[in-house]
Structures are given as structure tokens and as C-alpha cells.
């Protein structure tokens, strides 16, 4: 089986979620080709995808693609699926991957499933498990078309290093004006931070922190853990923190190894964004906070005392 994997990069590096997508494709078995777009990632970085199971990487080193142009990306990936006779396209769920895969699925007539949480079951047909109801349930679905697209959720596959190197080939597709119909005029992006959807550890703060000026201790704890920072909906609604940090039903859904919630009561809409975390720690002064029911470890007490102490204890334990 021939599998194509769409990989995304940021700041010259292949994203960790895309490495997971390569590892997922490798674990499915078959011949894995990756495709990367834009000239802000170089060949030596792409060769490393061999270490996770890709034999070949198609590189479209067109400067116009350094930005995530949804239509142009869709045209290229659909053509690459055809050229590489790929039966399956694998990619990581993301703000770019999802709209791109939707268009590709129509172009190539593929069955498409997003939020895939496990490897496919091919014992009878081609079936995958996907998360639904914002992580509150799963659906097992069969992909009935000959071509298939899987947008995978974080942690759907374990990253295994094979020690291999991939060959990088230049690849290009003729693009028309309509591919660039939507013009990106500006990008505002945090640099050098651990990004929320990619993070293995997330430290989030809620209204219990009383104001944006008190986020220093949350950031310090996050820094000590190499974690991303998140927040609850009221906090982003009040502009204490930027919207892209809002974790919950209508914000970012995270699935880290460890989620630490500070001063968040745990409304059901917030839990919907964190319920696929492996371990949850809740720090809250209210012993009745509903979040404790969803937690693995809990501390009842004043966040302003506990958080700095926790940072100190982590530092000491190093």
C-alpha cells in the first residue's frame, strides 16, 4: 500500500504532530512518501523524516507556499496523491490540515475521517476509530471509497525511530490564479513558544487567578516543565490571555500527557477540551470544584501559594 503524508513545518522545523503522522503511516505498513510545501524548511530537515519511516519526501520549495494557502495546498496534495498512486493520505489535524484535507477529499473522491485516534483495522474493510462529541465518545467508521484520507489526532501513534534517511525529491505542480484567490496579508504568530496543540504538558489558568497580572507564576511553572500555557474561556473572553490559548469546547482541544489546571472550576465546556489528556492535575481552593471529579491528582488550596511552591519543588527534583 502506498501512503502519502502531508507534513507541516514551523520555524524551519517539521512539526511534531506531522512527525506523528509519518510514524502513524509507517505503523500502518506500506510505502510512505511525505510531502512538504514551502522553502522555509530545508532538505536536511526533511531527510530526517526517514528516521520515522518515510522512504521519500516530495519537496515543493515554492516561496509562495511558506504561508498556508488552503487552495494551492489542496491542488498540490491532490496531484501528489495521484502521481504517487497513494491509496491513503495521512495528516495531522490542524488549522491548515483540516481545511486542506476537506478539499483534497472532493478532488480525489476519497473517504475522509478526521480526529482519528487509533491505527486502522483492515481485517475486514478499512475501519478507524475517531473521537466525537468533543472527546466524550468515539465512533468506529468504515471508509468505503478506494482512496482514503485520515486526519489524525495527537497521540494516535507512537513515534518510533528507525535510523533511516529519506531521499528528498523536488516536486512541483502548475498552479493557477484561483489557487491563490485568498491572499494572506499578514501573520501574527508567537515564536519560540511551545504551541498549545503540540505540547506534551499544558499549564492552564482560570478566573481563580484574579487578573492577567498574576500569570507570571503560571508562565514560570510552564517554563520549568517545558509546557505550553492555556486558559479557560472567561479568561480569554476578558482578554486576560490571547484567544489562541483558550482551551475548551469552542477553543483548542488538547491531548497532552499532562494537563495542570490552576483556578479553573471545570465547567463541562472546559472539560470537553481537555478530556483526552493522559493525566490531569487540578489545583483549586474550592474542594467542591467539579474539575476534581475529572482529575487524577488534586490539591485543594490557594493557587498563589501552591503554584510557586510546585515550581520550586520541580526545580529541586531535577
Amino acid at each position: 500500500m502506498s501512503i502519502l503524508v502531508f507534513v507541516e513545518s514551523a520555524e524551519g522545523r517539521v512539526k511534531k504532530t506531522s512527525i506523528e503522522a509519518v510514524a502513524y503511516a509507517a505503523a500502518m505498513g506500506g510505502d510512505v512518501t511525505a510531502i512538504a510545501l514551502g522553502n522555509d524548511v530545508d532538505s536536511s530537515e526533511l531527510e530526517k523524516l526517514g528516521n520515522y519511516g518515510a522512504s521519500k519526501v516530495l519537496h515543493v520549495d515554492d516561496e509562495r507556499l511558506n504561508q498556508g494557502v488552503i487552495q494551492a495546498y489542496s491542488s498540490i496534495i491532490a496531484k501528489a496523491m495521484e502521481d504517487s498512486s497513494a491509496e491513503v493520505l495521512v495528516l495531522a489535524n490542524s488549522s491548515l490540515g483540516n481545511p486542506v484535507s476537506a478539499r483534497v477529499s472532493v478532488k480525489v473522491g476519497a473517504s475522509l475521517v478526521s480526529n482519528v485516534t487509533d491505527l486502522p483495522d483492515t481485517s475486514a474493510g478499512f475501519k478507524v476509530k475517531r473521537s466525537i462529541y468533543t472527546g466524550k465518545a468515539f465512533a468506529n467508521v468504515e471508509l468505503t471509497k478506494e482512496k482514503k484520507i485520515l486526519a489524525i489526532k495527537k497521540n494516535a501513534a507512537e513515534i518510533k525511530e528507525t535510523g533511516g534517511t529519506a531521499t528528498v525529491e523536488k516536486y512541483s505542480v502548475d498552479l493557477g490564479d484561483s489557487d491563490f484567490g485568498a491572499k494572506i496579508t499578514k501573520t501574527d504568530k508567537a515564536t519560540g513558544e511551545v504551541l498549545l496543540p503540540e505540547a506534551e504538558i499544558v499549564v492552564s489558568g482560570g478566573r481563580g487567578l484574579k487578573g492577567p497580572e498574576n500569570w507570571g507564576m503560571v508562565e514560570e511553572l510552564a517554563k520549568e516543565l517545558g509546557a505550553a500555557t492555556g486558559c479557560s474561556k472567561p479568561v480569554s473572553d476578558m482578554d486576560w490571555r490571547p484567544h489562541h490559548e483558550h482551551v475548551g469546547q469552542t477553543g483548542v482541544k488538547v491531548s497532552p500527557q499532562l494537563y495542570i489546571a490552576v483556578g479553573i472550576s471545570g465547567a463541562i465546556q472546559h472539560l470537553a477540551g481537555v478530556n483526552s489528556s493522559k493525566y490531569i492535575v487540578v489545583i483549586n481552593k474550592d474542594p467542591e470544584a467539579p474539575f476534581f471529579k475529572a482529575a487524577d491528582y488534586g490539591i485543594v488550596g490557594d493557587a498563589f501559594e501552591i503554584v510557586p511552591k510546585l515550581t520550586e519543588a520541580l526545580r529541586a527534583a531535577k
Binding site: A110, F138, L143, V282, F292
Partner: peptide, 24 residues
């Protein structure tokens, strides 16, 4: 293009382990 086979619920969460605030 897809066919639903079956729904399932996630496994129930175990009990929370409480830790004393004096003992982080």
C-alpha cells in the same frame, strides 16, 4: 463516503488522588 459501524464511550475515569497543600 463513510459508514458508521458502532459508537463507544471512553473508559470510566479512576478516582482522584488528593494531595495535601503543604506537601507539593
Amino acid at each position: 463516503n463513510t459508514k458508521l459501524e458502532k459508537y463507544e464511550l471512553p473508559p470510566a475515569k479512576g478516582d482522584v488522588k488528593m494531595i495535601d497543600a503543604e506537601n507539593v
